[in-house]
């Protein structure tokens, strides 16, 4: 990897480790191996959001041309959010694309992602199903997002009704994650969700 990229990442590590957000356990970055090309990020779900208290793991890949091109970031933790694919974890965020600037850092990226969790942009969606739910039935969206966060990101607030519905389908022999996706997609209507899994 180019010298600038390695030197930058090394120094950025120090910056993130020293920053006050780390002190408050809000964000974290770790090396996956010694190559500095593949990193693990972690952000805490921001307060007063369905993601509150959850820990979200990110896969961060540093391109050869970093910092002149943005890092490639993806959610490894499954998440229900209009700008993040519920299937792949791909993120739709301007600073990770054309609005990237060389003076931005991993710290600013992680903080921006945290801000994105707090303020979704449904008009520029990555996951159309989630975005529609966010716009049309925001209550169901919040509950669904909280349910996902409690199950996948160990967030403390559970959604018992939804947990029950997933358990119901699971007991019928369906895969838990598939059942959750189908229920979430069909606004928690058990019959529609089952029809969807079976078709």
């Amino acid at each position: 990897m180019a010298n600038i990229a390695v030197a930058r990442i090394k120094r950025e590590f120090k910056e993130v480790v020293k920053s006050e957000e780390v002190a408050k356990c809000h964000i974290k970055v770790e090396l996956v191996d010694d190559s500095f090309t593949s990193l693990r990020g972690e952000i805490l779900g921001p307060p007063d959001t369905p993601y509150e208290g959850g820990t979200f793991i990110l896969d961060i890949r540093i391109p050869e041309t970093y910092p002149f091109n943005p890092p490639k970031v993806q959610f490894l933790t499954k998440i229900w959010h209009p700008n993040i694919s519920s299937v792949t974890g791909a993120i739709c965020l301007d600073i990770l694309k054309d609005q990237w600037a060389a003076a931005m850092t991993l710290r600013t990226v992680l903080l921006s992602l945290q801000a994105l969790l707090a303020a979704p942009e449904p008009d520029d969606p990555q996951d159309a199903v989630v975005a529609r739910q966010y716009k049309e039935t925001s209550d169901i969206f919040s509950q669904t997002a909280r349910h996902w966060a409690s199950n996948y990101a160990s967030a403390p607030h559970r959604e018992p009704v939804m947990d029950d519905k997933v358990a119901q389908l699971k007991n019928m022999g369906f895969d838990e994650h598939k059942a959750r996706v189908a229920l979430s997609t069909h606004n928690w209507d058990i019959e529609q969700a089952m029809e969807n899994i079976l078709s």
Partner: peptide, 12 residues
């Protein structure tokens, strides 16, 4: 004012 300053891109 200062003798050495940090480049905001390479952080050196």
């Amino acid at each position: 004012s200062s003798s050495e300053i940090m480049c905001e891109i390479c952080f050196l």
